[in-house]
Design a protein around this nucleic acid. Sequence first.
DNA 1: GCTGTTGTTGTACGATCGTCCAACAAGCTT
DNA 2: AAGCTTGTTGGACGATCGTACAACAACAGC
Lengths: 202, 202
Amino acid sequence: MKAPSPHQPAFRRIEPDARRLGLIEACARVLARAGAAGSSVRAIALEAGVSPGLVSHYFSGIEALVGATYEHIEAAVAETLDRAVADAGPEPRARLDAFVTASFAPAIADPQLLATWIAFWSLVTARPAIAAQHDEQYSGSRARLEALLGDCGVPKNEQRRAAIAVTALVDGLWLELCLSPGCFSAEEAGDIARRFLDTLIS
Amino acid sequence: MKAPSPHQPAFRRIEPDARRLGLIEACARVLARAGAAGSSVRAIALEAGVSPGLVSHYFSGIEALVGATYEHIEAAVAETLDRAVADAGPEPRARLDAFVTASFAPAIADPQLLATWIAFWSLVTARPAIAAQHDEQYSGSRARLEALLGDCGVPKNEQRRAAIAVTALVDGLWLELCLSPGCFSAEEAGDIARRFLDTLIS
DNA sequence: GCTGTTGTTGTACGATCGTCCAACAAGCTT
DNA sequence: AAGCTTGTTGGACGATCGTACAACAACAGC
């Protein structure tokens, strides 16, 4: 029943990097919509407007695709936070406040974003490569936070511990904000986090 | 090749509640070992030493089994924490310290325990019943913490916010401790949490 | 010991999973 | 315009999934 139109291409060839990106973004959308259990190769390929076989062609398996998706989303989150810090101006404490405030903005504290994290976390225990990827992401995130804290006068020998604490508090608030959005508001989460920063810096 | 021994029963009938519990504990072990993706009805039945059909007989589906497993594990965790608080004696601050310290003890901050949480979280977004179960667990946990904080002199109008903060910090530390155990130690996590309590109470 | 109840088994079923690969066609090169 | 490269298709494949159900057997009551 294909319409034998004069010459409508059945598909378009796309530059490999662009195709990879399209699959990664489709994976993120399916994870957000259907959760980890409903994110099959076929569902992702359909979302990307592509044949199922292409997933195997670009990724060694669906776990590799989830890993790449996590990496991509994490980079986007980090860029969003960095931009918020940059927009806050030169004052160190304002930059730190901007960091935690942006962590609870709608684009970040998004239940659908949590789906990608959960799918990734579910692989951390079993797959050493995924665990290494998580460690790298965590230490990178912590390093940025240590720099912000250092600018606010936190002594070097306390930066590591302070960064661990702030990361944990922000992540814990973020997680709960995603899991049950009605329990407390993003503003409240930001207030809690900023008040904690007061105790670290004063 | 079955040994036709004179009369070895092929199976034993067990009281329904005990059988339910056996399936729940088997589910927890499989989740811990194989993760959410590897926890099939067959794997759980094998772990429980039982036929696959029995799972359908006791639970409406595998999601219901995961929900019941979460409920069971969460109750066990709460009991462990309550016991630690009770063993700490009457002094309010010592009881609060015992609560956070126990939260990072090996039995609680266990990567295998995280698998149950992740499997459960992956259902929260899509299933309203699971979301309600999570909300109930969270508010119960927070209520216990509010009482401990109140005993330490935290004013009533600050208890809610303080409990949210402590829960988030402890959960964030717990999560990271499970995901990459080598990054920081349980003792360090306890120190961070107790120091945070100092700032809330003083 | 016999019988009735019912907890339990084991399998069949259709659906869906991830992976693979030969054939096809889009678009650049000549 | 013809050929070539290769990105892409689409279905086949075996494995595994969750569920349902008829047959069976363990155990209590008689």
